[in-house]
Amino acid sequence: MASEFGSTRLFAIALLVVATPLLTGAARGPALQLFPTTVLEDIKETGQVAEDMETGLQEVISRLDRQQQLYVESKCDGAVEDPGCARIAKQLGASYMEMLDVMGQRLPDMERAVNSTRTSLEKRLRSELGLKMTPWALQETLLGNQPDGSEPAQPKLRGRSGLRLSERFRQYYSLVAQSGSKADHSLAVVASDIYLDMEEASVLIAQTQEEIGRATLLEELNQSFGVITPEMQQVVNGVKSILFGESGQVIELAGPPPGSGQIEYESPLEW
């Protein structure tokens, strides 16, 4: 059961990964060619798949929440013999299976989009950052022309943003579309973030498909999801936080404190 929940979570993460490239698709500048237009269609399609999945899962997850609340308020925990509790538990199991089913339907499209975009980004990263740049050029690119004390205009990365997945894609797209060559530093980071997410997503999708198949078989055999377990609840929470931004945990990169506005001393020794 735990592995089924794990696979569900993997799927949700994979979905997040797929959506991320939408943001980077608009990233193109004369200096760094990390986001060629050929990737845009994949990104858009992936974003659409993410939005469809949000829509499809929102209803079933809301129902799961209501059923879970009813189960707790009815003090069903441990009351296995109670017919009313057994009915709620069975409904919980059915809703959980429906959630897996929705994800299972979207997975093939997601897998195709993820792999396509991942491959494109992989070539770009290797070419633009790996083969064309020295280590020094890389850090100069990352620093960009950002003045001291200013916050770089880029989304939060490698963590849950607290936003809906589709909204996160929209923000990425906006960032990429509005940035020219001046935002190369952001694009390099965004491209790397998306690529790593897609690598992870690719594995997660495969594992999720496998687990959905196993869970479906168990369900067909004996309605084994009669009671929602802590592991199941954890998976549902994970999907909610990734898709709908309901997680309280936000991982952010360190940001500078407010700038003093003073002109910094620059040594003749400075590179």
Partner: peptide, 26 residues
């Protein structure tokens, strides 16, 4: 120089991320 130090801190984190992706692509 708080601004400078935190920019360096951020640069290190971004370098770690970008190198992880770039080296995997390589």
């Amino acid at each position: 120089d708080q601004n400078g130090y935190y920019r360096a801190d951020r640069l290190l984190q971004e370098t770690e991320l970008v190198l992880a992706a770039t080296c995997r692509a390589c």
